[in-house]
Amino acid sequence: MNTSRLSLWLSLGFLLPACVQPAHNKTVVYLLDVRGIPNVQQVGLRGRDNPLSWDQDLPLTPVGNDSSLYRTVVTTRTGYLVTEVKFTVNGEFELQQADNRRIAFGAPGDTVVYRARFNVAGSLKP
């Protein structure tokens, strides 16, 4: 391999990694209202992007002792603008015949608060 060909491959090896999409930590606070749902044992969140998955719940914890409001905070390192999630109660998915919830991330460093009611599409106004 002559010198010019070697330097071309070396330059490609060092330059192409610069063409990787930048990723940032994006934080979303999920607040879920489960009022009216009987016998709530476990409330979970599943989704597309790490650390969430579609196979396993990330548990939400009640905000107060007798509260029907559950909460979790998820930080994802991503380059995407949007993530997709669904909530579960006792391991059962909400919105089974409907699209996933789409949550738009904020700017890098910003935290988004997403309020929702179980099995009701869309977010609630703060």
Partner: peptide, 16 residues
């Protein structure tokens, strides 16, 4: 897809 926010000829952040 616009949601993926990929610049022209940019490789997705997760692929490397």
């Amino acid at each position: 897809p616009p949601d993926h926010s990929l610049g022209l000829f940019e490789v997705a952040f997760w692929f490397p």
